[in-house]
Design a protein around this nucleic acid. Structure first.
Lengths: 112, 112
DNA sequence: CAAATCGAGTCTACAACGTAGACTATGGCG
DNA sequence: CGCCATAGTCTACGTTGTAGACTCGATTTG
């Protein structure tokens, strides 16, 4: 795992949204979570291309959910973050955290 | 300041590096700080084009320092982060913070 | 049942951001 | 002067972020 390429800003947010949603993470719910929590509105394109690229890098996976009782047979992709995805996310967090350290008092917002 | 466009991942780091360095922030010292704190190595190109773009967006400014005693007359650009730069940075932090909230326990690293 | 609608995902194209490395210019030094 | 070092410029390209029109099956509705 020598040099893990860095995550883009949106990539981070999408990974985080998936983690937040747990087993209910599919395309549009991810977009909703992002808008709700981060005030960030995405188009379909923005969402799915990023998801595809994360998949390509092995940071997320998905399996089809074949519809339950309601939504008879209408499948959707349930996304999960892979172990490598979690690591990449933590690496990004670690770097930012380190760079903020000492500045929090002056410019920061970390309320808790 | 309705919708402040989001900062790229490197843009955030460079802004933070400048804040950390205070009055000693010029091109190469920024690169050094980034490597030191974040383990992120940048080429000249990566550094200055990003700096130029931040300037264009009004997030950083610089003034020439005309050499002191040593370095007689050799000028360098001393960078500072503008008020808008600080806001943009805080906005990014706020979003990430919010997205991480609740996940810290499971996946987080925030040691303190 | 055809038409309108909705939810989920695909595809194409382009703008913005991240990156490298060769190049210029000026000063110090043997 | 020739050479090394520092600070910054320029060109070019790969990666990430973005929009919106399109497909396709299901549900609603007149």
């Amino acid at each position: 795992m020598a040099d893990m390429q860095t995550l883009g800003e949106l990539e981070q947010l999408i990974l985080l949204a998936i983690l937040r949603l747990g087993p209910e993470a599919f395309g549009l719910s991810i977009a909703r979570e992002l808008e709700l929590q981060a005030g960030r509105r995405l188009s379909r394109g923005a969402l799915y291309t990023t998801l595809d690229r994360l998949e390509l890098k092995g940071l997320v996976r998905w399996k089809l959910e074949t519809g339950g009782p309601e939504r008879a047979g209408l499948p959707k992709r349930l996304y999960t973050v892979s172990a490598r995805g979690v690591s990449a996310l933590r690496a990004s967090q670690r770097v930012l955290d380190r760079m903020w350290r000492g500045l929090d008092d002056i410019f920061g917002e970390r309320s808790s």
